[in-house]
Amino acid sequence: MIRLLYFASLRDRLGLATEEVAPDIDQLDVAKLRSWLSQRGGTWAEVFGTARGVLAAVNQELAGPGTQVRDGDEVGFFPPVTGG
């Protein structure tokens, strides 16, 4: 299982803060996970169908599209940060 977390405006748009998923995909990485999520359609396709505006972290480290995602990992998705 992979634990997904959604934050801030992304969580509001998706109406979901967290879920557990188990995509049946070889060599899963962030790009493949995004594409898998976008196949849910609707808002999911809007959010994850384009590369812009959504950042990802794997196990709480900023991740690129090619960062691998393994069973047991935590993946966070969020908009560009606005702290400070």
Binding site: F7, A8, S9, A57, L62, G76, F78, P79, P80, V81, T82, G83, G84
Partner: peptide
Amino acid sequence: YLKTRAPFWKK
């Protein structure tokens, strides 16, 4: 760096 890398969001 905090402004662009630390995961905080303001509403």
